[in-house]
Nucleic acid binder design. Structure first.
Lengths: 136, 136
DNA sequence: TTGCTAATCTGCATGAATTGTTAACTAGCA
DNA sequence: TGCTAGTTAACAATTCATGCAGATTAGCAA
């Protein structure tokens, strides 16, 4: 994800306005490795800006996602999570505490895959399920 | 997934009762390659047994899943899908029509993975996103 | 076959996550 | 400084899934 300053430029360039709510969310997501849910971010944002709406958090996150500045990740645990890391990477989720971390996978071009006939594949997501060091 | 007859045995052996509703669902899921949602199965079941409850469909599917007779798959499109194929396999989903098909992946032991330190991995799911032949 | 009892079914209520709606508000340009 | 399109907040609505309670039934035992 771009820096808050760069995002300000990018939003204006796209005809979108840069409000205090959005700037706060830019800062909260920049460099964030927590893979937060919308609710979690809303909670964080609320401490710094009481009265901010959950709807606004969702709105801004989906705007960022559609600009390619964030990735949505679904670990099958109810709520979607947001990841400012847009590198080509995957995830591991702890089934006990729900913690999610980034995983880098190399060598996938050597996989032998059967069943993709007729499909044009756009993207691949690999999700590892297990238990983290703390929960083991 | 086992055959309806075998499932009848298995349910009784576990102290679970075999009702007409359950038998119908056994038949509807056996060999089913559609990866249906609970709603879709409910719809199918309703034509053969009007009055069956959606609650019962969820209940039976959950029971089957906890017995290891089916797998739950989440393609990030809202509802969870159910797969009677419990082999070690993965899935591809068409982003246009939502169709899901089984994919077999070999060679994953040769992947080079970075970021799993401290995690004990129980399972891995690979999901391919793209467009199917009909929607391309 | 009959009766008992725990398991099940249905219908409805509830809950969690997300999106739709609308009137009031404001960023950013002229 | 004013205008106007884009935003926000509050609330309603939707979707998917689970909790609950009273009526019903499968399956065992006599």
């Amino acid at each position: 994800m771009k820096s808050p300053t760069e995002l300000t430029e990018a939003f204006r360039a796209n005809g979108l306005k840069v409000t205090p709510q959005r700037q706060l969310l830019f800062r909260l997501m920049h460099g964030n490795t927590m893979h937060p849910t919308a609710e979690a971010l809303f909670s964080d944002a609320s401490t710094q800006m009481p009265g901010i709406s959950l709807r606004t958090v969702y709105q801004t996150l989906t705007d960022l996602a559609s600009m390619g500045e964030l990735r949505l990740i679904d670990v099958g645990a109810g709520a979607v999570r947001f990841d400012p890391n847009v590198d080509d990477h995957h995830h591991v989720v702890c089934e006990m505490c729900g913690d999610v971390r980034d995983v880098y996978v190399a060598g996938s071009q050597n996989l032998s895959i059967d069943g993709l006939d007729g499909f044009a594949v756009d993207s691949t997501s690999i999700l590892f399920h297990g238990s983290c060091a703390k929960c083991a």
